[in-house]
């Protein structure tokens, strides 16, 4: 694994070509690995239930599934502390669960219920759980990046030892907000981790047609900050790279642009007909399913028994089924309260 220099300003470290790195399971203890696997299953089951509920007409609107990207969400947040912050995206269910949100309240939000995280006002694209440091998903591509700069300023001003991790996609890296935010975070050495989930497409736009550099992380050099690219379907690799970025942010060494190369196995949203990619490509990535991959490695390295794997998956399944019951049986908000909470105070 290539370890970027601690001093973010050294041009040498910055110019170092980011390479896909393999992770080592040995860096993680058994309990951490079990917890990580359980979270990955929870995310997968949550999204499968969300998808089915949508298909059955139980919920309206749209949703963006991250099925296939679970290692990136769980690995990147594995070494965050409970009081660290995250900012998420439209494809944010995974980040939310990974940071410790209750899937029942998330599903209730998805169902538009008063018991949901946003009391049914926000829906899938705006779930926020302030108690776990989750400052919210975002319906605006790259909407979270400038906010992360402000969170970093706030952490610094209050002399806290927190870190803010902001998620965004490859497509978001072409918004002005991305460039402005990286620059500010770099010049002010803010405790921010810019976590790009490069799933190859921004909706139908292949990243190869949307940017002239090979990796999003290559852009880090333009801001004099660290850039790392990892195999985003390799949980230990993501966790190891994120640990470096998190530690350096916490130590006052400024931001890192960490890119997880991954793939969304489902369409962009419900209206996607997958006209821009081939079945073969989807199938090839299905073979690299991050959950199966982690399980295979755990078994191969005798870190876990196959029997226990099934129990972890079933536990997650059970939790999501209960969450669904909670969501379905919760009450709708009262339309008379429509304009409540437009203003504070």
């Amino acid at each position: 694994m290539q370890i970027p220099a601690a001093d973010s300003a050294t041009a040498a470290a910055v110019r170092e070509k980011p390479a896909l790195q393999r992770g080592e399971l040995s860096a993680l203890d058994d309990a951490t690995l079990r917890a990580a696997l359980r979270r990955m299953h929870l995310i997968r089951k949550f999204e499968e239930v969300a998808e089915q509920s949508y298909m059955r007409g139980l919920v309206h609107g749209t949703m963006h599934l991250s099925i296939g990207q679970e290692a990136s969400a769980v690995g990147s947040t594995l070494h965050l502390r409970p009081d660290d912050y995250i900012l998420s995206t439209h494809r944010g269910h995974g980040h939310c669960i990974a940071k410790g949100a209750d899937p029942a309240r998330m599903l209730a939000e998805f169902f538009g219920k008063e018991t949901g995280y946003c009391r049914g006002r926000g829906g899938s694209m705006h779930i926020a759980d302030l108690t776990t440091g989750n400052l919210g998903a975002n319906g605006i591509v790259a909407g979270g990046l400038p906010i992360a700069v402000g969170v970093g300023m706030s952490i610094k001003a209050q002399k806290q030892s927190r870190v803010c991790m902001v998620f965004f996609g490859d497509g978001a890296a072409n918004e002005g907000a991305f460039h402005e935010s990286l620059n500010m975070a770099a010049i002010w050495k803010l405790p921010v981790v810019f976590l790009c989930e490069n799933n190859k497409y921004g909706m139908s736009m292949d990243i190869a047609n949307a940017m002239a550099v090979a990796n999003v992380a290559d852009r880090a050099s333009a801001y004099g900050t660290r850039g790392i690219t990892v195999d985003g379907n390799d949980l230990p690799a993501v966790a190891a790279a994120a640990k470096i970025a998190i530690d350096q942010a916490r130590q006052g060494d400024g931001p890192t642009l960490l890119e997880c190369k991954t793939y969304r196995l489902r369409g962009h949203s419900k209206s996607d007909r997958n006209l821009y990619r081939t079945k073969d490509e989807i199938e090839a990535w299905r073979q690299r399913d991050p959950i199966r991959r982690l399980q295979d490695e755990l078994v191969a390295q005798q870190r876990i028994e196959a029997r226990e794997l099934a129990a972890i998956e079933q536990g997650a399944q059970h939790e999501i089924e209960e969450a669904l019951e909670f969501a379905k049986s919760s009450a709708d908000p009262d339309p008379a309260q429509l304009t409540r909470d437009v203003y504070a105070g």
């Binding site: 309206h60 609107g61 939000e109 538009g112 219920k113 946003c118 049914g120 006002r121 926000g122 829906g123 705006h126 709708d332 908000p333 339309p335 429509l338 304009t339 437009v342």
Partner: peptide, 16 residues
């Protein structure tokens, strides 16, 4: 439109 952002819940959305 109501003096509020558009809510997600369908009946609230209609009411807005």
């Amino acid at each position: 439109g109501a003096d509020s952002p558009i809510p997600y819940n369908p009946s609230l959305e209609k009411a807005s």
